[in-house]
Nucleic acid binder design. Sequence first.
DNA 1: CACTCTTGGAGAAACGTATCTCCGAAGGCT
DNA 2: AGCCTTCGGAGATACGTTTCTCCAAGAGTG
Lengths: 385, 385
Amino acid sequence: MTAAANQSGRRPTTSRRLERAGIRDVAAAAGVSITTVSDALNGKGRLPDETRSRVREVAERLGYRPSAAARTLRTGRSGLIGLTVTTYGEEPFTFTEFAYFAEMARAATSAALGRGYALVVLPASSRHDVWGNIALDGTVVIDPPDQDPLVSELYRSGVPVVSDGKPGNCPVTAWVDNDHEAAVLGILDHLSEAGARRIGLLTGTSTDTYTRLSTEAYLGWCTKVGQEPVYEAYPAHDPAAGAVAADRLLARPDRPDAVYGLFDPNGTDLLAAARRYGLRVPDDLLLVCCSESDVYAATEPPITTLSLKPRKIGTTVVNLLIDAIEGVDSGTGVDIARLFPPRFRTAGNGPPPGTLMPTELIVRASSQRRSPRTTVSAPRPPGEV
Amino acid sequence: MTAAANQSGRRPTTSRRLERAGIRDVAAAAGVSITTVSDALNGKGRLPDETRSRVREVAERLGYRPSAAARTLRTGRSGLIGLTVTTYGEEPFTFTEFAYFAEMARAATSAALGRGYALVVLPASSRHDVWGNIALDGTVVIDPPDQDPLVSELYRSGVPVVSDGKPGNCPVTAWVDNDHEAAVLGILDHLSEAGARRIGLLTGTSTDTYTRLSTEAYLGWCTKVGQEPVYEAYPAHDPAAGAVAADRLLARPDRPDAVYGLFDPNGTDLLAAARRYGLRVPDDLLLVCCSESDVYAATEPPITTLSLKPRKIGTTVVNLLIDAIEGVDSGTGVDIARLFPPRFRTAGNGPPPGTLMPTELIVRASSQRRSPRTTVSAPRPPGEV
DNA sequence: CACTCTTGGAGAAACGTATCTCCGAAGGCT
DNA sequence: AGCCTTCGGAGATACGTTTCTCCAAGAGTG
């Protein structure tokens, strides 16, 4: 024991500074080697239970906390996952999809925590040194733009990336998205059935996947049913512009008798605009908007909303990513075999695997001329694209 | 150069695996020592500009990225700040103050990023191993309960902690909070001036600082002006309970003619309840609620809200924490000298320094019987408690 | 010329862990 | 009795930086 206490005499002669206890101190105090301490604490190696518990007890008594940095350096695993959102302004999160993002981030955090990982919020536009200064095991990217340099950089670094939103042209490991086209078509059909003759759209000017796919679906539908498109687009990141756009849409000579708004605040804005023009909802105007907020259950009248199910998306994205990191298929139902090896993705083996998650239409009074029962319908079941 | 290329011949004989380039590779390729590379890249040491730029160029060419783990291990700094929120359920964030929390977290992230730090979201109830596995330079704790074991643990580990919300009995380095008492008194006065005779309160059942201080302020005010308190409390983390409580409050025989709701959804819930009872706002019922959401600008009628200014709080909290970590006073106006040294806080030198931030009352139609001008007033200037 | 500075940079020691290799001893088997 | 196997554990190395210490050579100085 006495010999072991000084087995690796690297300490300087002066009494060591009164810092936190290291694994060496525990080893010395317990009269065992560093190896034994490490094994005992991590449940590895072949040790009798007695030794194991004794070491644990000593470690506890000394208040020993393993150094996360050292462990990360040694194992190459940090237990940290980056969460990135493309930012439109100087703020780290986008405004427009904020409720969606918040819910999604919450679910992602929860899912990660449940598997022993923590999330680091890192806007894509962060100072480069911040990105470089953090050991990330993987990254979740929300709605990466085409040719996202950040994703490419991560790919080159060998960091697995899973994106929320089908990526345009980025080497992601996997992606998850809603079936936006199906969702929009479902809403348009729903409004038609409720008696809408001319359906308008409140959309955005940015080029993200969500806006683009939704708008395209709308335009395609118009062509199909022979309706002249009637829509207004505004910069979705500008909170004030939405109200103006809503007003513009209802002020048009070819005023629609039903409107679908792509963004969260559109519901209240459209409702306010309708009041200004003396339009009654749903009698004169049918209303649906995409939102995760339940304030729309208590508006007058309650407004039908499309939920993108951010919780489900956040959970799935994180689980997919951790599967990729650990090289395990935890049963998310995605073909994980294509993700490895090596370096998480072989070049040129086709597009990365993607998952389409269903949306949920929460039907309330604003989109029904008759009995306002609260129904729920999934426009389309999930599946590979 | 050729000699330097193999200066630290620790590599195994077999050709090194095709991993990322390390600082050694850069040194070899540039024909300089490791020291020089480190100095050149970090802007330290005394090197001629020519050497510096050459090394940088080589590093760039090799795609060199310093290992964050190694740097953290060596320097003891990770650049990571924990963001902890007391959780009421199994979800990582509290529901009730969610909009507040989201805004606050956003501002905190922004402020941290601006100073080169990143935020890690870590619910207090996380698995212990997750906490232990992350090298944190400091932690922001939102509304720690009395005798919070987590805060004590962090204190013992020497991790500086700054709390959002005046801590009951925890060894925090510093804290920031709103002046909740002043805010409530300001609202009650505001409602009185608008003609309220009997002011009710919608409050929570939990014992967090916010709920407690606000309720106490209300009760104190009632005693002072001789009004019988009329309030309903509900578990604020339950989204459905709020509507029920709002209904209960307006159903009482001693129905109030003005109500202040402590939580974000109370506005819409109270509005809906008022409609059910045929009460017109503001004619029959004056309404104020605490919220960060701007949906209340578009309700019918628009509702007066109290903003706790989460952005300001988030920014201040983070700056205070980073000041403590770096031992610098960046000019936040708080007496930083008391935070050190050593180990960030000397025991027994009185209470930790705190800052009170002002709130903002956004007056809208719901709390005025006459001209609905949109005014802004700060109940009380900030200052030490 | 003998000396002191200054410049430019090399060497090596940590940081604290995980893990690969190896070894003695005790038991089991033929 | 010799050999093999398993048990329990020690030693040493590597992970990739930062930084403290030190040195050689040239430049200035009396």
